[in-house]
Design a protein around this nucleic acid. Structure first.
Length: 424
RNA sequence: GUGGGUGUAGUUCAAUGGUAGAGCACUGGAUUGUGGUUCCAGGCGUUGCGGGUUCAAAUCCCGUCAUCCACCCCA
């Protein structure tokens, strides 16, 4: 039952019976990013608070109310990272990663922190995976980044998601567009919900995806961002679509996709699982062409995405998908009698030193209890060692699935196991 | 941060204000060297925590913590 201490709100333990799922997701993500030649980058989980305020935007909710901000002993104002892009761009600039003129293709996996009210698929400490591709504004890159997300979800076996894309233009387009939005919604001001009355001042684009019915109706005829793209942004967006089609990635244009973070420009996209409830964005991403410069680097464009492992797991479990194999030992050693147990201990060590994962139930003596333990461990093979075997210098090898068992010379067992288990 | 629901054994859930139960899981056993099916046996758990009302509280009230759903926002 509950002890004296409880885990902090919105956090969770990844227990041994579940950790293989995270392992599987990480491995799969590494495999997929490898196909695209992305390399891993690891940055600290805390940064100067200022970094996020500058990049994500002081007015954004993330900075406003969701950041874990604290002072260290020297009075430095730090924050647990709420997202992954800003730290990576910081590192890119600080370490001059673009120095050789190549694209920086980076991926990361790690915890992020947001002080929010917890919900299913949304936690205060959660694990994100993501990529950043810094150094090119070529629309081919947009498609490639999207392809990484697409291939990842597909590789996990997911099929129930939808890719939605939009272009939110550059700061120039946004300026005009926001004016148009404000103008449009102002004429309906009295009919807007109280949230939207604030949004119209703070972030007009947010009016577009309000969930209140009356606002939805009004938003239906609101001007579309896509009509306000300048030539450059419009061509870029078209090319992105062409490139996606070229590599057979289906997508839907959703002019209502809005990014919450200030640094986004041009392409914005989301992979959405529509039967997931409110927290349905599996992956969210977009271009951030001004960010590197803003953080003190050269005027270099970038694009990336991020996704949360917890939502992925919810989505996969809903679909009944597997997370690879749960970890189990290769063999389970069962011993009978003192002499066999004594011998078994050194034999166990021999197996392990030969890269055979082996387990024993040291506190149980009866054959039955040990066989039960072997079964529960999910080891594919049991090795039974008793007086009979020791006398003849043999050991019983039992296939736990078929029940078939045979006597094998002790001198040959390691070699035989390596062969059956296909360990090189 | 706002609104609503929930909180009982490892877990899923029962229990008109009157001694707290079941399935699954777990452990042991079913003639002494064989698991996964079957049968038998084994649970006194501060009913999340702290107050209050009452002769009596898992049950009613207040607070608190946690969780779930929605909003805000986001992965």
């Amino acid at each position: 039952m509950a002890g004296k201490y409880q885990i902090p709100r919105g956090t969770f333990d990844i227990l041994p019976e579940d950790s293989y799922k995270w392992q599987y997701l990480k491995n799969t993500f590494r495999e997929v990013t490898r196909m695209f030649n992305f390399k891993e980058i690891v940055t600290p989980i805390f940064e100067k608070s200022e970094l996020f305020e500058r990049s994500v935007g002081v007015s954004s909710d993330i900075v406003q109310k969701e950041m874990y901000k604290f002072k260290d002993k020297k009075g430095r104002i730090l924050a647990l990272r709420p997202e992954g892009t800003a730290p990576i761009v910081r590192s890119y600039v600080e370490n001059n990663l673009g120095r050789d003129g190549d694209l920086s293709k980076l991926f990361y996996i790690g915890p992020m922190f947001r002080y929010e009210r917890p919900q299913k698929g949304r936690y205060r400490q959660h694990f994100q995976y993501g990529i950043e591709n810094i150094g090119s504004e070529n629309p081919y890159i947009d498609a490639e980044v999207i392809a990484v997300g697409f291939n990842f979800l597909k590789k996990l076996g997911l099929d129930n998601f939808e890719l939605q894309i939009n272009s939110i233009g550059c700061p120039n387009c946004t300026l005009d567009y926001n004016k148009a939005l404000v103008k449009y919604f102002s004429s309906y001001y009295d009919e807007l919900c109280s949230d939207c009355k604030i949004r119209i001042k703070k972030n007009p684009k947010r009016l577009l995806d309000c969930k209140v019915e009356s606002c939805k109706k009004i938003a239906l005829n609101a001007p579309s961002m896509l009509d306000y793209l300048d030539d450059e942004c419009e061509i870029h967006f078209k090319k992105v679509q062409e490139n996606l089609s070229k590599i057979n990635i289906p997508f839907k244009i959703n002019p209502r996709i809005v990014r919450g973070l200030d640094y986004y420009t041009k392409t914005a996209f989301e992979f959405i699982d529509n039967n997931l409830g409110a927290q349905n964005t599996l992956i969210g991403g977009g271009r951030y062409d001004g960010l590197v410069k803003q953080l003190g680097g050269n005027d270099v464009p970038g694009i990336g995405f991020a996704g949360g492992f917890e939502r992925l797991i919810v989505s996969m479990e809903k679909e009944g998908l597997q997370f690879g194999r749960e970890q189990s030992p290769d063999v389970f050693l069962v011993t009978l009698g003192e002499e066999a147990k004594e011998f078994g201990i050194s034999f166990l060590s021999k197996l392990r030193n030969n890269r055979i994962s082996a387990e024993i139930s040291i506190d149980k003596n009866s054959l039955k209890a040990q066989m039960k333990a072997a079964n529960k461990s999910k080891a594919p093979f049991a090795l039974i060692l008793g007086d009979n075997e020791i006398k003849k210098e043999e050991i019983t090898l039992k296939n736990m699935e078929t029940g078939f068992q045979e006597l094998v010379k002790l001198a040959d067992i390691v070699e035989k196991l390596l062969q059956i288990l296909k360990i090189k």
